Simulated assay, not measured.
Amino acid sequence: MKARISDISTYLPERVLDSAEVERRIEGWRPPRGIVERMTGIRRRHVASDDQQASDLAVEAAKTLAPDVDLMIFASASQDMVEPATAHIVAAKLGLSCPVFDVKNACNSLLNGVQVAEALILSGAHRRVLVCTGETPSRAIRWRVRDRAQFVDSFAGYTLSDAGAAVIIERAERGIFYRDFSADSTAWSIGTLPGGGSAHPRDPDSSYFRGDGRRLKEAFELIGPDIFLNALKRTGLTWDDFAVVAVHQVAMPYLHFLADTLGIPQDRLVVTLPDHGNCASATLPLQLARGTWSRGDKVALLGLGGGISMGVMLAEM
């Protein structure tokens, strides 16, 4: 038996913010006009309403799926509060009474949540698992900028988008047939949201995203593409064998670089970044939901996350 991704649902908040409006909202130091779209290729992103929490976005995605699950995992970079686990809040809103817990690993959170769900299914502990995410990074965008250096340090926040996603993982005769994960945790400080934990419990200035896009790109390149290329070598497959190759997307130049480096055909990619921004851990399910595939087709999920971590999962749908 295997564990199969049997259903997918996503939710995108109605409010849309284009890159020009993002730049207009920045106070203090004024960035060059058009720089966000020019540097990232992102035209617009989604923003949750003021009364929507991370749990609400997960609920909006998950409520369209059949509720007959014996475990629910909330797997997200965002959370409603430090305690309790946001999974309990999601479960209460969905009316679930099964065991629940959180999995958190930046933009790879949902991919790792699926990894955990697969392991628990293969062990016989569970048979049908809901893995969901609700991402609200818009709450951590720095809108008042002191100078150019602070704008550069805060730039990653201007690419991020709010979104929800949910997948059902269940026992089946076909499904996930390969997975591999790696990390270089020495690079954890390159991109952070410092506030809320024990290091900066009450520092308002630590409640915004900080990051160095150039150093992050270099860190991913240092690990190298081997984790993705080894997946092909070890399975004897090529990218042409997959109906969809879903890749975590942070900026169009880096997506083109990664696709060229790995040799991924353009017609296998589902490019969501320009119209939806970086949806954090909801990015991969968003691409699966919008991609063209049929039951029995193979799909590849390629994850990149702060910390830093990389992951690959190959599955037959």
Score class of each variant (00 low, 15 high):
Ile223Tyr: 01
Leu222Gln: 11
Asp240Cys: 14
Thr238Leu: 15
Gly224Asn: 14
Phe220Gln: 00
Ala219Trp: 04
Glu221Gln: 14
Leu232Phe: 11
Leu222Glu: 10
Arg214Met: 07
Phe209Cys: 03
Pro204Thr: 01
Lys217Ile: 09
Ser207Ala: 12
Lys233Tyr: 04
Thr235Gly: 09
Gly236Asn: 11
Glu221Gly: 00
Pro225Cys: 04
Gly211Gln: 03
Trp239Met: 12
Leu237Met: 15
Leu237Thr: 10
Lys217Asn: 12
Ala231Asp: 09
Ser206Cys: 12
Asp226Val: 04
Asn230Ser: 14
Thr235Pro: 06
Ile223Gln: 12
Gly236Phe: 14
Arg214His: 07
Pro225Tyr: 04
Phe228Thr: 00
Phe209Lys: 00
Asp203Lys: 05
Leu222Ala: 13
Arg215Val: 01
Lys233Arg: 15
Arg210Val: 01
Trp239Leu: 10
Lys217Pro: 04
Asn230Leu: 06
Glu218Asn: 04
Leu229Thr: 10
Asp212Ile: 09
Gly213Gln: 06
Asn230Ala: 08
Asn230Thr: 10
Leu216Pro: 06
Phe228Lys: 05
Ser206Trp: 05
Glu218Gln: 09
Glu221Lys: 07
Glu221Ala: 14
Asp203Arg: 08
Pro204Val: 01
Asp240Met: 15
Pro225Leu: 00
Arg210Cys: 03
Asp205Lys: 03
Arg215Trp: 01
Leu216Ile: 15
Gly236Glu: 08
Arg210Pro: 03
Ser207Trp: 07
Tyr208Phe: 15
Thr235Tyr: 11
Leu237Ala: 13
Gly224Ser: 12
Leu216Asn: 06
Arg215Ile: 00
Ile223Lys: 02
Ala219Ser: 15
Arg234Thr: 05
Arg214Tyr: 01
Leu232Trp: 07
Phe209Asn: 02
Thr235Lys: 09
Gly213Trp: 04
Asp203Thr: 07
Arg234Gly: 09
Asp226Met: 13
Ala231Tyr: 08
Trp239Ile: 06
Asp240Phe: 13
Thr238Lys: 14
Asp226Ile: 03
Leu222Arg: 14
Ala219Leu: 11
Lys217Ser: 08
Ser207Gln: 13
Gly236Trp: 12
Ile227Arg: 12
Phe220Met: 11
Gly236Lys: 09
Gly213Ser: 07
Asp240Thr: 12
Asp203Ser: 06
Tyr208Pro: 02
Gly224Ile: 01
Asp226Cys: 02
Trp239Phe: 15
Asp226Gln: 15
Ile223Phe: 05
Asp205Val: 05
Ser207Arg: 14
Tyr208Ile: 06
Phe209Ile: 08
Thr238Met: 12
Leu216Val: 15
Lys233Asn: 12
Ala219Tyr: 00
Arg210Gly: 05
Ser207Leu: 10
Glu221Ile: 08
Arg234Val: 05
Arg210Gln: 07
Leu222Val: 06
Asp212Ser: 12
Asp240Gln: 15
Leu216Asp: 05
Asp203Trp: 10
Asp240Glu: 15
Trp239Arg: 14
Tyr208Arg: 01
Arg214Ser: 00
Asp203Gly: 03
Leu229Pro: 01
